[in-house]
Amino acid sequence: MFQGLGVEVLSMSVDSMFVHKMWNDEELSKMVKGGVPFPMLSDAGGRVGKVYGIYDEDLGVETRGRFLIDPDGVIQGYEVLTPPVGRHVAETIRQIQAFQLVRESKGAQATPSGWHPGRPTLKPGPDLVGKVWKEWKTEMAFD
């Protein structure tokens, strides 16, 4: 899925690489054929997590921080959730597609709220000022 978008995935937790191996080999490989396709990284001291602002000192774990980094190494988006609620991967994929489109257009196009591939983009410029209402309807934010 992410490979098709040209995106390299890295996961990170405070578990050691030895525990990552066991989790992959014993459980995750039963969910994903061939096992986890991306590097599972260890931040046992939480030091990387602290720099990224997602390490929970009280729990001693890293929260569900998700960072989208562009080819220049710039953070284009992030989301952080506390442990009990999982992510919605489809939304992450949608955001990657949107950021890639914007980057490929060199900023000539922007993706309005609710955009997904195939939907019209906005072309920011003098002619669009005060005219977004013609291009984009409120309902488009919700589907």
């Binding site: 995106v7 890295l10 996961s11 690489m17």
Partner: peptide, 29 residues
């Protein structure tokens, strides 16, 4: 350090410059 495809590896984020990267933290294995 990390685990990938049966090997223990050492990863540096800056080696991925030129590519889109999705970095995901999570509470625990």
């Amino acid at each position: 350090p990390g685990y990938h495809n049966g090997k223990f590896i050492n990863v540096k984020l800056s080696e991925y410059l030129g590519k889109w990267v999705l970095l995901c933290f999570y509470p625990g294995d």
